[in-house]
Structure formats: structure tokens, C-alpha cells
Design a binder for these strands. Structure first.
Lengths: 345, 345
DNA sequence: GTGAAAGCGCTAACAT
DNA sequence: ATGTTAGCGCTTTCAC
């Protein structure tokens, strides 16, 4: 915890200083600042001049304490170093800022304990709402948030416990499988990303299975290329490649995983897309690089951010009072065909 | 089962509630929470039980208002979607969190106006300190922060106005040039990144010039591959490639730019590293991908984050009161040789 | 149109 | 070892 002393700051001017200098009362100053009550032009000018002269800045702590409501939202993100989440977070912060909200961002590093701790921090700071870009699935951690009436919106996260704005993950995975099946692939494996949020992984896995069914293809293996944190039972890439009939195509849980997979495949002597096709999910900027040229399912990241923020603020402002129903937005995804998919060998 | 309406936020328990339930005074509760004064075991147990029963969480707003000091730091970052900054920010948030500080992250999108606005937000929230991962160079914007005695530390930013923890950028660029010169290159251009913070760009440019001098090489062009936001006078890639003697090697301002450059070079029919070598700066995770295999200058990102945070908190805690001298840490960088550099054609 | 007064929830002297 | 008290800087009735 932070420890004591202070340095010699010139004490910041307070609303009382402004009142004194402009020769009016605190309330009048507050009125011109917030437009909360009428005031004369002359008063306004005097107050504004005093504010300027003193370099006055309202103290958000005092304001929020008194109002019993902050203009700050909290964001829980699993991994900021994944460009998809970096970009998503950036956009969220931008939209929130435009609406007058500050953003406290917490990276949980994928850890559940960390997620709980960070939510606690947000609670202590009395955030007006929480955006979950990662959710461990532990309901007890968010029960306290909801008990306080603090709205939660999942962004790129699916859960029946709170409002969600997500891409149509199942559809995306079906699109991926269909594309591969059209190309003639019959053994299409799924490669989950350990970093992806569990509910999202499930939706994509489901879409993959559905896609396989619709194409009349047999169930192919789920392949791990990273140390599984959650412990999902899967085959490892090495074992899969050594098998008599290795998959000819892979649907990856996200672009990062797809890129990693391509690395491992090529290191093992499998050409992509010559010997195996790979398709990602997200369409991060890097996927468009010629050397990578990753075929992938594009998420509408801008809409995700915009609608996530606006839904949260709607609830924060109580605009939907009475309407108790949970909103579940599914945004359309899009197949971006590039160079990592081709007909099977 | 009758349920209370959704909107009824059960008002949060306050320290007074805890005091009432446990039969002691507010101060005693505060004492057991903060350990600020001795108390009996029995009292502690009663208070803790009450806290638990009521689901009490201290209100950080009230605490900070009263203490006139928050446990929150602000971070100004230029582009969270660049994985280098995503990772750096993630690490910063982690170290700050461990020290008991919450982090308000502001992405300025590279804009100067935005930088000023965001600093204003941080000021209103009375952050204990500010970490600048991007600095426009506009001193007036930070004058107000310093006037309040709020410490500022630049991370991966160089400025003589505040403490700085940065990589040895000039050295990095010299290393890059030396590597290229060793390989036999004689026309080594520099490709600045528009997103990189100006002082950093300058340091790297300086290193590039020094490297050229030391190797006895002629000044090569500075090449733009993006629309220059700042207006630095440079040649464009097209013009440079059309010239009779195009560069055989390029030192890029960061990895993102290097990767972009490779794309453009290859699109124009120049093989990398066959016809032209490219070297980046940062060593983001993607640089290690086989298909990219980018030779680059690695920044010690973990140290950058750790030392930036610890220096800031030192100043916040006033641990170095009296010592007025500015700290300028230069962390060592390292050449990571991969596959985008080779002898000239 | 403006001001006085009562807190928001907490900490930190200072009492006891 | 515990309680009393006086604010921190602001908003918000409610008078005038």
C-alpha cells in the first residue's frame, strides 16, 4: 500500500477559492460550472475569470463522493498484449471518453484470482459500470457487483448472467469450416486458444462441430498447441501430426493461435497452405501482412466497442429502467480469404 | 418468490454501519482496517465479522478525498493497438497493482489535443502520478501537472523536463547500422514511424547518423512509408526505389514500421533480405514468427515497466524528497539477428 | 439569481 | 485501546 508523506505542492485551488475571488458563493460557482441553475451573464464571466486565474479544476473525488456516482467505468481485459484486445480496449476507452467517462483498465493476465482482485478494486473506486472482455465464469465474483446495482456488460464475452455484445462466434466457426469444406477438406481440426475467454471458446467450438455436421464431415480432433491452462482434454499437435491421417485443415481459436500454429506446422515440415490450411479468428492488423496473409474470420471490432460502451452507459444512466430483460447482441462476422487456405494436398 | 425491483441498489454499507453492527466507533473500525492504531484481538474479530456480514468495502473516493492523496496513477499511451505498448501497459498495470495502485489508462491516439484532454482528466481524478509512454512535446500541457507537484515519469520517452526511463535508443540504432555495415551495406536508409514518440524518433535518428559516421558511410535518405503526421521532411519510398541507387538496407523506427516496409518492398518486387535488408526496433512477439523473422533491436520491456513504475512511486511517496535531480535511466538494448538482414545483392 | 447549510464516507488529531 | 470531532471539496435542497 502507498505510504505517507507529502511534498510541498502548492495546494490546488478549490471551489471556495473561486467563490472568494469572484465574490460569489460556492453554490453559484457550482451552478456556472454545471449549468445546474440559472445565473447572470456577469456572474458567469466573473466566475470563469476566477477559474482561469486560479487554474481551478474541479475535484472529481469530491464531486463523485457527493453525487454518490462516478463517471468512471472499469474494464477487465485478459491480455492487453494481444492486439485484438489492445485495439478493442483502445476503442472502448475512446468511446467512453467521448461520453465523459474515464476508464480504469485492469489486465487480469488470464488469472481468475486476479480477476476477482481487480473487480474488488473497481468496486472500491465505485465505478459506474463494468465491461468484461474476459470472464472466468466465476459468478460469485460478479455477484457483489450486481448486488450493488452496478451494470455489467460482456464484450466479446457470452454469459447469461449479464448483457452481452459479442460477435456471432458460432457462425464464424461455421463459416470457417464451410470455407474449408468447399475447398475439399475432410479432416478439419480445431485449435483452441488458451487465452480466449471460455464462453467464446465454447461458442466457436460449437460452431466448428455444427459446420462439420452440415458438411457431412466426421468429427476431427481438438488440438492443443499451448500448455492448456484450463485443462480441456485435447490432443497435442505432435501426436496429431504423427498419426496416419493428420488433419488437412485447422480452425484456430484466434489469430494469435493461428499464427503460432502455422509456425509449428512449418517447423515440423508441413507447408501452409500446401500441406495444411489454417484459418484464424479476429482479423488483427498483422493478419493482413503479405508474409502472413492469414485467412481469418473478421470480428467487427469497432461495433463491438461502440455497442458495448453504449449499452453499458444506457444501463448506467438508467435509461432502460423497468426493462429487466438482458440484451444479447450478436454482431455479424465475415470470412476474409487470404493465403493460408487452399485445397488439400 | 417475491423479488425486489432491479433498480433498488441496496445502498452499500459504510464504515458507520460496520461500527454500529460491531458495537465500536468509526475510528476503531478504521484502525483495524488500516492498522493505523492498536486494537484488541476481540475488537478485531468483531469488526472483521461485521465487515464480512455487511459485505463492506471501503469507499476509495471518501478515503482519498480525506487523505488528499489517491492510490491511482495515470498512464498516457499513444497507441494501445501496437503490441509493444499493449505489453508495456499491461506490465505497468501489473506492477502498479502489486504496489497497491490502480491505473487509469488513456490512449491519445497519437493526437496532441487528446493528450491535453486526457491529462486534464487525470488531474481531475487527482492521480498520484503520471506515466508518459507518449509525449507530444508540448510542455504547457504538463506544466500544470508539475505545478501541482504530481510526479511525471516518461517511459520509453525522453525529455529533459521530467524523469525518464528509456531504452538506449541511439545505441540501438547504432547497433542496427553497425550490423548492416558489417554485412557490407553502404546505403542504409532510415524509416521513421509516425506513431513513435518524437523524442524517441530523434534519438534513433541520431544513432543512425552516428552509426553511419562511425562506419564511414555516406548519409542515406530518411524515407517515409506512412503519411507523415508531424511533417518531418523525408523522401517517400516510391521515389527512393525509383532512384538510380536505392538503399540496400533500412533501419525502421519500430517493428510495426519495419513490417509495413517489408510489405511495401516486397509488393514493389524487392526481396527481403535478398534485395534489401530491414531491421526493426522493439522486438514485439510477432517479430519472432518464422514467416516474419524480423531482425530487430530488442527493448527490455519488462525493465522499462518495472523501473518506470518504481521510479514514479518513489517520487509519489516522496522517498527522494530534497533530491531535486532528474533521473534519466537508459536501459541496454540488444540486437536480435533474424532473417530480414543479409549481405547486399 | 444567489446564498446558507447539510452532508457524501472517510481519516487523523486529540481526548479519554 | 477506543471514542469524539473536525473537516476533505463538492452538490443540492431550500430559503431569500
Amino acid at each position: 500500500m502507498p505510504r505517507s508523506p507529502r511534498r510541498s505542492h502548492r495546494r490546488r485551488a478549490t471551489i471556495v477559492d473561486v467563490a472568494r475571488v469572484s465574490g460569489v458563493s460556492k453554490s453559484t460557482v457550482a451552478n456556472v460550472i454545471n449549468g445546474s441553475a440559472p445565473f447572470s451573464d456577469e456572474t458567469r464571466d466573473r466566475v470563469l475569470a476566477a477559474i482561469d486565474e486560479l487554474g481551478y479544476r474541479p475535484n472529481a473525488l469530491a464531486r463523485d463522493l457527493k453525487r454518490r456516482r462516478t463517471a468512471t467505468i472499469g474494464v477487465i481485459v485478459g491480455d492487453l498484449s494481444n492486439p485484438f484486445f489492445g485495439e478493442l480496449t483502445r476503442l472502448i476507452e475512446r468511446y467512453a471518453g467521448r461520453a465523459g467517462y474515464a476508464t480504469i483498465i485492469c489486465d487480469t493476465d488470464g488469472g481468475d484470482a486476479s480477476e476477482r482482485d481487480k473487480l474488488g478494486v473497481l468496486l472500491e473506486h465505485r465505478v459506474a459500470g463494468v465491461l468484461l472482455l474476459k470472464f472466468s465464469g466465476d459468478k460469485t465474483q460478479i455477484a457483489e457487483v450486481e448486488r450493488d446495482g452496478i451494470p455489467i456488460v460482456g464484450v466479446s464475452v457470452l454469459d447469461r448472467g449479464f448483457d452481452c455484445v459479442a460477435s456471432d462466434d458460432a457462425k464464424g466457426a461455421r463459416l470457417a469450416v464451410a470455407h474449408l469444406a468447399d475447398l475439399g477438406h475432410e479432416r478439419i481440426a480445431y485449435v483452441p486458444s488458451v487465452d480466449t475467454e471460455p464462453s467464446t471458446t465454447n461458442a466457436r467450438l460449437r460452431g466448428w462441430k455444427q459446420g462439420l455436421e452440415r458438411a457431412g464431415l466426421p468429427r476431427a480432433p481438438v488440438v492443443a498447441i499451448e500448455a492448456p491452462r484450463g485443462g480441456r482434454r485435447v490432443s497435442t499437435l505432435g501426436a496429431v501430426l504423427d498419426a496416419p491421417d493428420p488433419p488437412t485443415a485447422y480452425v484456430a481459436g484466434n489469430d494469435l493461435t493461428a499464427l503460432d500454429l502455422i509456425d509449428q506446422l512449418e517447423s515440423a515440415g508441413f507447408g501452409v497452405p500446401k500441406d495444411a490450411s489454417v484459418i484464424g479468428f479476429d482479423d488483427i492488423a498483422f493478419a493482413g501482412l503479405r508474409r502472413l496473409s492469414l485467412t481469418t474470420i473478421r470480428q467487427p471490432i469497432g461495433d463491438l466497442a461502440k455497442r458495448g460502451v453504449s449499452r453499458l452507459l444506457e444501463r448506467v444512466d438508467g435509461a432502460d429502467e423497468g426493462e429487466a430483460s438482458l440484451v444479447r447482441v450478436r454482431l455479424p462476422v465475415e470470412l476474409i480469404e487470404r493465403g493460408t487456405t487452399a485445397p488439400p494436398p
